[in-house]
Design a protein around this nucleic acid. Structure first.
Lengths: 135, 135
DNA sequence: TCTGCACCTTCCCATCATGGTAAGGTCAAG
DNA sequence: CTTGACCTTACCATGATGGGAAGGTGCAGA
């Protein structure tokens, strides 16, 4: 099938399919006489795998590792589990950071009357308070 | 003071200070005879405001709005509160999405023995299951 | 005065995943 | 033969940030 149908079936844009090929995440596609790329079951499966991993927030490097493990029939599930747990820890870290930001903002907003006077604890907090959240 | 000291005092890199100037987030700095940029209290205050807002996850567009409100003595705190609450809602959305990703991964990892056999529910999940989390 | 060093200037390039667009080739249906 | 949908490559853009080159400035010490 052509790249457009592969895109529709997997939810990965044609643009990105070509990009994944160019960076070696997927092998060079077969070409027809017309020079159009030609995809089969195997490619669709691989692209679907990539999309689902991205939906779960894995980075491209992590996906590269997962694809390697996926294709390795000798791999132990322990390797995959370790990679996954490391990613879960990253997600926890991001969630915690966003939660801290949220808490700081909510505290400032709570202290703000939200009326028409120019006094505003939010602005004052941004203008001078040393906040604790960091990237 | 020179840009290096302004950077040290505010935690904003010299590179970014020049960048903020180029995109109009801060006014063009005064120049000395040497053509070096020259900063004073006011600039330091403004840069600190920007850094703290970034630490709290505000986008550049949001920061632009906050700076406008900060400098507007006629602004009502209601405007600032509304912008902040909108940002809190964005944070909530991100936190929820990350939580869903985490939940899906944790479920898969729990079902994975993590031993040396190649069977792995995580890989199987990525290979075929339709997952619900979306960006 | 000369030298060295720390600092500054502008300009260009790179990241990362993704999208847009332009110029042109392929193919099937009418 | 034309039209339209599809494909190809190639270039540019995003947004926040950093890296680095080439060259000017300013100060302290020999």
């Amino acid at each position: 099938m052509q790249i457009g149908e592969a895109s529709r079936l997997t939810g990965v844009s044609a643009k990105m399919i070509r990009h994944y090929e160019s960076i070696g995440l997927i092998p060079n596609a077969d070409r027809r006489d017309s020079n159009y790329r030609d995809y089969g079951h195997h490619d669709i499966h691989r692209l679907g795998f990539i999309r689902r991993a991205r939906d779960l927030g894995f980075s491209m490097d992590e996906i590269r590792d997962l694809l390697r493990l996926w294709g390795d029939t000798q791999r132990s599930s322990a390797d995959v589990k370790a990679l996954t747990q490391s990613h879960i820890a990253e997600l926890d870290q991001k969630i915690r950071l966003l939660g801290e930001m949220r808490h700081t903002l909510a505290t400032l907003a709570d202290a703000c009357d939200g009326d028409h006077r120019p006094d505003c604890p939010i602005i004052e907090g941004l203008a001078g308070t040393e906040l604790h959240a960091r990237n």
